[in-house]
Design a protein around this nucleic acid. Sequence first.
DNA 1: GCAAAAGTGTTTTCAATACACCCATGG
DNA 2: CCATGGGTGTATTGAAAACACTTTTGC
Lengths: 223, 223
Amino acid sequence: MSSLKEDYSLKLETLIGIFTVDKGKIKILMMRKKAEPYKGYWILPGEMLNIKETLEDNITNVVCEKLGLPTMYIEQCYTFSNLNRHLEERVLATAFIGLIDNITLVLKKQERDDIELEWFDINSLPKTGYDHDKIIHKLIAYFKKRIINSNILKILFPSDFTLPELQKIYEQILNVNIDRRNFRKKLINLGYVVDTGDVNEGYMGRPAKLYRFNDELESRNLF
Amino acid sequence: MSSLKEDYSLKLETLIGIFTVDKGKIKILMMRKKAEPYKGYWILPGEMLNIKETLEDNITNVVCEKLGLPTMYIEQCYTFSNLNRHLEERVLATAFIGLIDNITLVLKKQERDDIELEWFDINSLPKTGYDHDKIIHKLIAYFKKRIINSNILKILFPSDFTLPELQKIYEQILNVNIDRRNFRKKLINLGYVVDTGDVNEGYMGRPAKLYRFNDELESRNLF
DNA sequence: GCAAAAGTGTTTTCAATACACCCATGG
DNA sequence: CCATGGGTGTATTGAAAACACTTTTGC
């Protein structure tokens, strides 16, 4: 009977794909594994779930304590339960996405010696350990879907972004080209973005006007 | 050290909210609990996850073996990890939605003595055990969101449904009234539904034409 | 013939699309 | 002055929304 009871005893880890936007590119944060197995491979940050904490507390702790990042917007995405995820024991994984804007990220920047972190463009991912490749792709698909059918893009674009920047992100996510004039017309005429009156100087070409999202508008699908 | 190891050992159960549409109403299947705790209360069907199975295998098994229902469309929704979900031990729960059309359901109908099942209108739910009330509401919200931004409504409406039926579901989900003429125009003109040529006789009033979804059309948000 | 429920058409408004030239800055 | 990148306007098409009367059946 005690072996039967043992049959229901599992381990569960958390994993998080943290996304940001930098110079028109969507990036995800990965961590380099320092020990075997998969030494030198890149993995998603995460931690084994302790019996005394919730998944959400655990992942918040991973973000703030382990990674040294600011508190950020987090959503649960999926729980992976393949039998052979880990080599020695049965470990399930609940995966999250986290969103942080690049400005906050740079302000908070604090290097840590004990972990090696790097931001990868979601179109050129490194060699990953475990089943993280599969998980990352699910997280990216989830991220894209959420950008399209919610207004969480606001989180990645705090005040003072340019419309060409925003357009690049939509083009990557929808995998289409958008006409610049029609894009501007849509966002401005429908009241989604508001001109701040400032411009983005110091780059090549004509300076771009800076905008912010209009928080008073209810969310709806733009594309 | 062995107590530290114990700290990461958890139990995880599956739960499923099975949805169907019957006479223009959205229903969810619940099970009456036969033993303490929460004896006599209604709960979502589910099962403790065994160390040797995946979540998906487990929940498929719950549907087919435990409930005696046909194989159906299932999606994972969320993993709940509150500390006090169960009274005695720590049990997490991964919740799923299942969709089945009423025709298939009636054909497969097989009564079982050992479990008491009942379909509840999602607007008049019974008294539930554990934290299932919270879980059901999350499942309903997820279900509604998926109906809106995917084409899974097709699963609930196999060939030969009427447009007034379909409209009622949209009205419940969107919580708005839709003009009958505009509704028909949209679905028919955009090619989403196809007239089968048959009509729905034997009810009060003028018989309704029967339609089926056009499978060749790619999914998009209709509302 | 009446109650119940379903079917139908027109007009107006607004968003979607397609498309080409000018403007402001840095070097 | 030129290269780079950003900003702007118009015309056409198609869908969204508003709106009231007629048709078919069961009883």
